[in-house]
Design a protein around this nucleic acid. Structure first.
Lengths: 348, 348
DNA sequence: CTAGTATTCCAAAACGTTTCGGATGGGTGG
DNA sequence: CCACCCATCCGAAACGTTTTGGAATACTAG
């Protein structure tokens, strides 16, 4: 493998100048730079990553840490993320390190090990939580990171996110506009920040319409078909609360909900109106549901290129304020919303 | 971050001795080593990966390169591989680098870039092919690698593999033993070495029974349900070859094959006997097919820990002969094999 | 002609580790 | 007492890059 010294000898230049020529510094004559570049190409020169890293303190490696092996139903999404990050980082000249943590080891220990040896320059953080310990740790250590989503203020870090409160407001608002007053919300896990924002949005939409939000109609829970099915049985079973409209935080929840609604002999949108936020999860398209579901839509996939770009910029020292991207959300009307039908006698 | 120098100053030792103490060299007094270890722990010392790498030439990073984003039906398998490699390598103190190559860039260029800067010590090679260009390149460059499967002899490299010829012999043999003479084989892609070995096994089993292998009954093709379905229509359609028994190289092929057989109004095992090799692909269990399929079984997942271990050993200079593992294959009899029924009149 | 300013270059230090070639001192066998 | 060996230690070089602080040259303004 050719080194800078080899080049410098062949060219009759100092190692310094060769380095500066290759790195595009200003104080090297254009003619010299051309000679250096030509010779470097000829010899197939590639800078030694270790040496560069020792000198600069940067490794050029960016990491994603998962708390454990993904659950089966998340497989396709996981592949999407990993493939996208790897590809986009490669395009930016970085390497992608994937680390599946041992579920027993404390999260921050894992990060400590990875940054300790200077192996990894920065991290992508998925599924941020309120008072996220990873964020606290990386902040304290001064290690760059980019968040997919947002944590609580101050927002002094790079992120890609959508306006989750607005999403929930819009979905809830569509049902209210159709005349619904008992609007339930099947939300994600309470520990995730986006779920908290969405609850706020649901509340606001109701309050704006002069409706008192009924706590029992809001549910934190898993983003799974199971959660939707259970909710259906619970809402419209013997002692149910009979909401007339339901906002689903995920197409997976909606899938289970629709199954439950069908099983109970009800139908959408005649008996219940359903709307959903569509992340464009692989293989789950609200347009292909029966009936097709009205939805707000912002593909998760939109975020991956941004995350790669933002993280690289953050490692390069760009200030966080310029590294905050909010994704677009569009609305797809599909006819799963109709005016409410009065609740059957004998229910609240 | 504490360095060796910090430790040496605190302990009144030379940097040399501290380094040797931590790395378990022989010429350091036990008492000294204990002191060093204690102090290292106290300061939370972690060796700087870049410096070590610069000195030793090894980076501690091991890579997997995929030629492009995985296809959807392979997602779960891909997750399994990636998660397992990451976890097992982490346990061995190495980092796992996943690189999704740009499909346009020539494979060897990708590897050249990755090893060029000394970024990656060695690679896991999946889906080896005959005269695999990656193998040729890595061999020429002297970069360690481990192969999942085998390439053509000489076998002077580390691998984990099963005896694919024996698998095909066993499956074909089971059908022959039940009285079948027209035994078809739905194989994997011709470019993959395992498919070539399996074809040899199929041939041998037939020849051992004094049956002339009929080339039209063997098919290279994708490991997909589609391939199985097409084969079914082709075998038992209007101008079909009417094999009485079929060996499937994968449960995915078998899935399509069974669907086709059913669609043609035939049934297993009355009209056709079917056996399959079961890799334990996620979500595909021959025991749950209708009817349950007789199979040879060796979980792909068995291989991942070996691959991690073998690669690490290879990078550490262990000779290849000791780094060759052959996985076990068991047979599951499930009753999808019956004696053949005579071909309908008018067919070959 | 002089002082000042760009432009282009370079020697040497620094990054933190491993390793090579000894040095030191105590013990052993003669 | 000498020669030798063993156990334990150390200084210095090496890995290949970036960066610092200036040096040398040519040009410009006065």
């Amino acid at each position: 493998m050719a080194t800078l010294r080899d080049l410098s000898r062949r060219l009759g230049l100092s190692v310094t100048q060769v380095s500066r020529a290759l790195n595009g510094h200003a104080d090297v004559a254009e003619a010299t730079r051309a000679r250096v570049l030509a010779e470097a190409r000829r010899l197939g020169y590639q800078p030694n990553a270790a040496a560069r890293r020792l000198a600069t303190g940067r490794s050029g490696m960016l990491g994603l840490v998962l708390p454990g092996p993904p659950r089966m139903e998340e497989d396709s999404l996981f592949v999407q993320i990993v493939a996208a990050l790897s590809q986009h980082l490669a395009r930016l000249g970085r390497l992608f390190v994937l680390h599946i943590a041992d579920p027993d080891e404390p999260q921050t220990e894992v990060y400590r090990r990875l940054i300790g040896g200077g192996a990894i320059d920065g991290f992508v953080l998925l599924e941020p939580q309120l008072r996220d310990p990873r964020v606290a740790f990386l902040r304290a250590e001064g290690v760059p990171f980019v968040v997919h989503g947002r944590i609580e203020p101050p927002h002094d870090y790079p992120f890609y996110d959508i306006d989750n409160r607005a999403v929930a407001r819009r979905l809830t608002g569509m049902l209210i506009a159709a005349g619904h007053r008992r609007v339930a919300f099947l939300n994600g896990p309470a520990r995730n920040t986006y779920a908290v924002s969405r609850r706020a949005g649901w509340r606001e939409a109701l309050e704006d319409a002069g409706i008192e939000p009924e706590p029992a109609l809001h549910r934190f829970g898993a983003m799974s078909a199971g959660a939707g099915l259970v909710a259906a049985v619970d809402f419209w079973g013997p002692r149910g609360l009979w909401p007339t409209g339901v906002v689903c935080g995920s197409t997976r929840i909606a899938m289970g909900l629709l199954e439950g609604i069908r099983a109970l002999g009800l139908s959408v949108p005649e008996d219940v109106s359903v709307v959903v936020h569509d992340d464009e999860l692989p293989g789950l398209r609200p347009a292909l549901f029966d009936p097709p579901l009205t939805a707000t839509r912002s593909p998760l996939a939109d975020g991956w290129p941004h995350l790669a770009r933002l993280l690289v910029a953050a490692v390069d020292g760009e200030p966080a304020e310029r590294l905050q991207v909010e994704g677009h959300v569009v609305t797809d009307e599909r006819g799963s919303v109709a005016p409410p039908r009065p609740a059957p006698p004998g229910t609240v």
